[in-house]
Design a protein around this nucleic acid. Sequence first.
DNA 1: GGCGCGGGTGCAGACGATTGCGGAAGACTG
DNA 2: CAGTCTTCCGCAATCGTCTGCACCCGCGCC
Lengths: 352, 352
Amino acid sequence: MTLADVARLAGVHPATASRALNQVDGSGLVSPATVARVTAAANRLGYRPNPVARSLRTRRSHTVGVVIPDLANPLFPPVIRGIEDRLAEGGYVALLANTDDDPARERQLLERMRERHVDGLVLATVRRGTPEPAGPGEEDLPVVLVNRVAEDRALPAVAADDVSGIRLAVAHLVSLGHRRIGHVAGPQDLSTGAGRLRGFRLGMAEQGLEVGPTDVVVAERYQVAEGLRCARQLLAQRPRVTAIVAANDMLALGCYRALAEAGLACPQDCSVVGFNDMPFVDQLSPPLTSVRFDHYAMGREAAQLILERLATPGCPTKVVYLPPELVVRASTGPAPRGGLGAGGGGGRRRAD
Amino acid sequence: MTLADVARLAGVHPATASRALNQVDGSGLVSPATVARVTAAANRLGYRPNPVARSLRTRRSHTVGVVIPDLANPLFPPVIRGIEDRLAEGGYVALLANTDDDPARERQLLERMRERHVDGLVLATVRRGTPEPAGPGEEDLPVVLVNRVAEDRALPAVAADDVSGIRLAVAHLVSLGHRRIGHVAGPQDLSTGAGRLRGFRLGMAEQGLEVGPTDVVVAERYQVAEGLRCARQLLAQRPRVTAIVAANDMLALGCYRALAEAGLACPQDCSVVGFNDMPFVDQLSPPLTSVRFDHYAMGREAAQLILERLATPGCPTKVVYLPPELVVRASTGPAPRGGLGAGGGGGRRRAD
DNA sequence: GGCGCGGGTGCAGACGATTGCGGAAGACTG
DNA sequence: CAGTCTTCCGCAATCGTCTGCACCCGCGCC
């Protein structure tokens, strides 16, 4: 079942059959009658072009490398699905790779992808300070960033609007009467961690609140254990916080634990807000208030961008920000009376 | 950078270079001296064979199709990672596809995979009653099943030992004093659903307990909403159950909701056991007791099996069962006094 | 010394599709 | 009616690698 068979059945040369089948219709390289004959023959035979042979000749594999830190992070599956679905519509397939946040492993995986002749890359792994996100020699391969953006916006990217998202969270807490709000920040070498910290400072400023040096603790990784460590520290150095904005749901989980350790109830004693609205955070106890954005859409958009670059290599680099929204659940509640809130007068003071 | 360049540098014919590089060393087609010269040249040039050209010639793509219902199901990411890691060790890559449990979509995806000339398939989507798991004409492609097994064990597969796992759960509940135990069963057209129901009956029999017709409700899908529906029904038709064995963690989540609706506390009024020990079920409230098995290992083992079949096509079909273990958390507790348990005498009867 | 044998290489033809080039018609103009 | 242009199609090369076949050469044996 090759092109030659189709050509024979249609009574034309294989070259003509090829042109007939690949014709963007109308551009007169092949007569309409011939196109009809060939496509009819192809249909009758159920002909499917051999992508391997095609790739060899055209040097395009119709394959895109997708590099993420870890598939087991619940944030990524919906993103991957979005990428794959959109790529499939464009006739491409995704090649997945997990780096486990290990730069050495990442380099090795990118090398493998180059060997496989991927046509482009979608990277969810860039860090600030590694200016060549795709490694040396990648300049020819189209690259799109997802979830994280490049420091200088020099690369096309799709990500949530971290700053706005955190501002929503802060505004929500303030509207509940909170004034002493802490931030468990994400790793500052990631655009998300840095952006969300910026969003926190900005949001607080907008509400007329100051951010002191003890109001922020920076996590080294987006992990529950780090969230626990940071929240402990925050509670220690800032005992009267009534709310914590976590840079990420994982960190928020760590905050839950730290509060439980300290014998504080959430949200009665201290509210917590997360970011990402991962699957199942609505099943936690208490269900987590979190900043949501559409993960699947982020994936689709990233795929869209890489498809555009594949189609027209020189096109301008776009950076797309997805609008976040706050999903209010039970982990946030009114500020406890007795906090330093300007909301009400005195009231009962907590015992601690 | 092609084989011809290497050959030129080594002063041999490309054909010889090819043989030298592909030689399983020792089988004397090429002299050792030549092999040394060629490999040296290849290293010096950093030569990497073009997998596309190689595939075209050898008709092997070094690619394995991995078909799952839905990547967003937390069970699968670790499995996928196991598959990908083991495949990578064998020089293969995985091509992922999600069927969303839609047979039509599955057929279409399998067709795409055939077009892409995958060398084998790992399927997590087989249902009982579809004897041709991979569709017609798949007889030539090696297939391995994962998570679910074929009805007649005719296909190699890797899965948890569903029967043993559920028996562990039942034994645990009985040891806590439970006697009236219900089962929210999984879809019976899936081997997991059927196996776990069988395990439930067997486990109950082993404990000398009978399973009446109202003790089991069968879910149509592994979804929280279905779990809710079934648990509601179970509570209605069997009001005095003190424990529910769910065929799956999703269904267990539904049970949580049904209990909450009914004003019952877990585990004080009714214990719940899940299956799979999905990520984050330890963060639920209460943390879920669940039957665990090693998801990553399951993936690795499936990849191992497909690699074996790829290496020696005729090898006997193995079916591997992974040993399950019970992870006891806070969703299971002593049977409430006043149940029909044989454990103690009368005691306080619950008000309902 | 001639012949046979076998290990090691070179030659060239696939694999299946794409594409520059040129040629053969048909259309159209002067 | 001749010449030019357009349209459509066939020819053959090409992508990079593998592999059946033939060849060459050296060695051993009769």
